[in-house]
């Protein structure tokens, strides 16, 4: 059968959601941000809530998330997205509000805002993309940089004695009674993407039911910052990031997974 006969509108089984704009993504080739954006927007589309969804973009690689997500969005100061989202959600409690943040934004400069939004049990969704490095500013050490991992500000590897430990923010906030659904996912394989999308769906359903804060960490790659090609970066992530940041649900229905 000729390809032209297959590629017809009636045979379409998958295409980019209309909630992603046609602007070319500003991310490096192979970066997980694009996938994380897309599945977030797919969930919003599938739930039919795009007219009632307001996103909050961070500072970091995904600062321009509002260029790519075709919904109303506010760009927050570095680390302040959970506070910005709180302001929106408290004044529009019937809307769906989510933040999209990287590890420097969420776990370093915005640690306090993250902790307190979680602790108050704000009915928002936080999507947390953790690639263990500062991507936008050129590969500096993040709070989630692994022990011994090289970055431009830990050029000889992260020295735990002087630079501290990688921060497991997701485990930390799971301890707070305000969080209802806490999970860690990845987007490096088709199966992982499908699982991560299901988790994001649960997160938005949690918000719909006003059960508390839903937090989805996505462990991702940074092939530029890690100085690898995209496929190798994904493999390195599996071998090195996943042991320290294991995938899976951490808190479901308000209960910690044993």
């Amino acid at each position: 059968m000729d390809i032209k006969e297959i590629i017809k509108p009636e045979n379409l089984v998958y295409q980019k959601t209309k909630l992603m704009t046609d602007a070319p993504l500003s991310y490096c080739p192979g970066c997980g941000h694009g996938t994380a954006h897309r599945i977030t927007m797919e969930v919003v589309e599938e739930m039919g809530i795009w007219e009632d969804t307001i996103g909050v973009a961070p500072v970091g690689c995904s600062v321009l998330a509002y260029d790519f997500m075709n919904i109303d969005m506010t760009q927050a100061a570095h680390g302040r997205a959970p506070a910005v989202a709180t302001g929106i959600k408290r004044t529009w409690p019937e809307k769906f509000v989510f933040t999209y943040q990287g590890d420097g934004d969420l776990a370093a400069i915005g640690g306090n805002e993250t902790l307190h939004a979680c602790n108050r049990g704000e009915n928002i969704v936080i999507i947390f993309v953790n690639n263990g490095i500062y991507g936008m500013t050129g590969g500096q050490m993040a709070p989630t940089t692994l022990p011994g991992m090289k970055s431009s500000t830990s050029p000889y590897g992260r020295d735990i004695a002087t630079m501290g430990h990688p921060l497991k923010m997701t485990e930390l906030i799971a301890q707070l009674p305000g969080t209802y659904f806490v999970t860690r996912q990845a987007v490096h394989t088709p199966a992982a993407v499908r699982k991560a999308k299901k988790a994001i769906r649960i997160a938005f359903e949690t918000q719909r039911e006003k059960k508390g804060l839903a937090f989805v960490e996505i462990v991702s790659n940074c092939n530029s910052g890690w100085k690898m090609n995209p496929v190798d970066a994904n493999n390195w992530m599996v071998d090195n990031m996943f042991p320290y940041f294991p995938l899976g649900d951490i808190k479901v229905n308000g209960e910690l997974i044993k």
């Binding site: 100061a77 302040r80 910005v84 989202a85 709180t86 302001g87 408290r90 004044t91 306090n112 805002e113």
Partner: peptide, 26 residues
């Protein structure tokens, strides 16, 4: 009217920023 004690002045002004961006009087 919503009243919220934030965790810091930094958080408070950013809550204002978020809500002000939606057209509310904050």
């Amino acid at each position: 009217m919503v009243v919220l004690q934030a965790e810091s002045e930094i958080a408070a002004i950013n809550m204002v920023y978020g809500a002000a961006g939606t057209g509310k009087r904050v």
